[in-house]
Amino acid sequence: MDLTRFQQQLKGTSSKARPLPPVDQWNPDFCGDINLTIALDGRWFYEGSPIGRASLVQLFASVLKREGDKYFLVTPVEKVVITVEDTPFLITQWEKEEGGFKDGSTYVFTTQTGDVVRLERAGQLELRVPPKAIQDPEATPIPYLCVRRDLWARLHQNTYYQLLEQAKEVTSGSCTQFKIQSNGTSFVLGEIT
């Protein structure tokens, strides 16, 4: 699979002004593997070299699809498997948007590819044990956020620690949870037993 040819097929399918391409509706034939990897730190590599053009990474991120445990880049006519070391997205920024709901705020997150995710509903954030390469000694679960279509993001360590400063500590029995309120819903960022 040629990365340049794949890029040509995607021309005009996505831009900041238009919604994401309907990759869930595209079911092209499988065309094999492409030597493209999304590393633990959120960087994209092609044949071992980092992809330096942010616009190219954003384009490829817009046509990412997950089926079971595999990740694919898809166009209307081709489908290629890529390697994802943990999650395809990494949350690198956050802000608290005031107004609009019971508690008056909604957390808004931005990924390394520029995707913006509003934390609005239950099930959108869950605690998972990260890969061994980035685990702490106790393998403490950390928050992962659903970006779209069963594609998840891990919170960057700095982002996670900043959010913990915003969290309310709630103790129940032998368990202490750290929670934030967003769009009127309570979300657990971490817990200690």
Score class of each variant (00 low, 15 high):
Thr83Arg: 07
Glu165Asn: 14
Tyr161Asn: 07
Ser55Asp: 15
Cys175Asp: 06
Ala153Trp: 00
Arg121Ser: 10
Ser14Met: 12
Lys179Leu: 14
Lys96His: 01
Cys31Ala: 15
Phe178Cys: 04
Leu10Glu: 11
Asp24Gln: 08
Gly48Pro: 11
Leu145Val: 15
Asp103Lys: 09
Glu85Lys: 15
Leu163Cys: 02
Leu59Tyr: 00
Ser174Trp: 02
Thr193Gln: 13
Gln8Val: 11
Asp33Gly: 05
Asn27Ile: 08
Asp115Gly: 00
Trp94Ile: 01
Gly99Lys: 07
Tyr144Gln: 07
Glu120Thr: 14
Glu120Gly: 04
Gly184Trp: 10
Arg121Ala: 13
Gly68Cys: 10
Glu67Val: 10
Phe178Pro: 05
Glu169Tyr: 02
Gly32Asp: 12
Gln177Ser: 13
Ile34Ala: 06
Gln112Phe: 01
Gln9Arg: 13
Phe89Asn: 11
Thr110Asp: 02
Gly42Val: 08
Ser62Arg: 03
Glu169His: 03
Ser55Trp: 08
Leu145Ser: 02
Thr176Val: 09
Pro130Asn: 05
Arg43Phe: 11
Gln9Ala: 11
Val74His: 00
Leu73Asn: 01
Val80Trp: 10
Met1Val: 13
Ile51Pro: 09
Gln157Arg: 14
Glu126Cys: 11
Gln181Arg: 12
Leu36Lys: 08
Pro28Lys: 07
Asn183His: 15
Gln93Pro: 05
Gly42Arg: 06
Arg149Ile: 00
Gly190Tyr: 03
Pro131His: 12
Asp136Met: 06
Glu169Ile: 05
Val188Cys: 13
Trp26Val: 06
Asp24Arg: 03
Tyr71Trp: 09
Pro131Trp: 07
Gln177Trp: 01
Ser15Arg: 01
Arg148Thr: 01
Thr176Ser: 09
Tyr160Ser: 02
Leu36Glu: 10
Ile192Gly: 00
Thr4Met: 02
Thr159Gly: 03
Leu125Ser: 03
Leu3Gly: 01
Thr92Leu: 02
Cys175Trp: 01
Asp24Ser: 06
Arg149Glu: 08
Val117Gln: 03
Pro76Met: 04
Gln135Gly: 01
